[in-house]
Design a binder for these strands. Structure first.
Length: 193
DNA sequence: TATAAGATTTACT
DNA sequence: GTAAATCTTATAT
């Protein structure tokens, strides 16, 4: 389990990259599942047109992003998919990191059950799939990541820096010039274990 | 109160 | 490659 100050790091890009290779765990309804994070995107606050909090748009939904770092931000996209974010930075600075992909490590049978299909390379690639695989829904919005239902831990998985790729974010074409920012991090190194 | 659009996934052609 | 599924949120009447 990572310490709370980890999430208070002020460099959301550093955290997004550093989270690659960490393990995201959930214990929901007494079902324990984990996956190694393989893809993230950073959303860098009020000056980031792709962020929900762009231009200091403080609403009921985005209020969670203004919390002190270390809590979850879960919201519904396209009416179907739950997207799971990690809120970072200090109170009133709405930075967050979207978890876009994991590699299942613990509870694979439960993950297959939730996903309704068998393990494959793409089973948990895509933010909606990640949430479904780990059982995350709107009930898990605004939860502490140092609590007992959702957390991130460091299992000592080493990722070679040359295996981490950087590029533009996905699905944010509306963000104009900010859509091109290299705020997405992912690894193609699936040789965990 | 009503409307439009969205940090997507899936199945089908 | 295209389209359908599906509902909350933000913004405008």
């Amino acid at each position: 389990m990572l310490k709370a100050f980890y999430y208070l790091n002020k460099d959301v890009l550093f955290l997004a990259e550093d989270l690659i290779g960490k393990t995201l765990c959930t214990n929901i309804n007494n079902i324990f599942t984990c996956g190694i994070i393989t893809e993230t995107e950073a959303y860098a606050g009020v000056n980031d047109k792709a962020s929900h909090a762009y231009n200091d748009r403080r609403t009921n939904r985005t209020e969670i992003m203004y919390s002190k770092g270390g809590v979850s931000y879960v919201y519904l996209c396209y009416g179907i998919h739950h997207l799971f974010n990690i809120v970072t930075n200090a109170k009133d600075i709405p930075h967050a990191i979207l978890i876009r992909a994991i590699y299942p490590s613990i509870g694979i049978e439960e993950i297959e059950e939730r996903r309704g299909r068998k393990l494959s390379k793409n089973l948990c690639v895509g933010p909606g799939k990640v949430s479904q695989a780990l059982g995350i829904n709107l009930l898990h919005n605004n939860l502490s990541l140092t609590g007992k239902e959702i957390w991130v831990q460091d299992d000592g998985v080493k990722i070679n820096p040359s295996d981490i790729q950087v590029g533009p974010r996905i699905g944010v074409d509306y963000a104009e010039e900010d859509a091109k920012l290299p705020y997405r991090f992912w690894t193609t190194n699936y040789d965990f274990k």
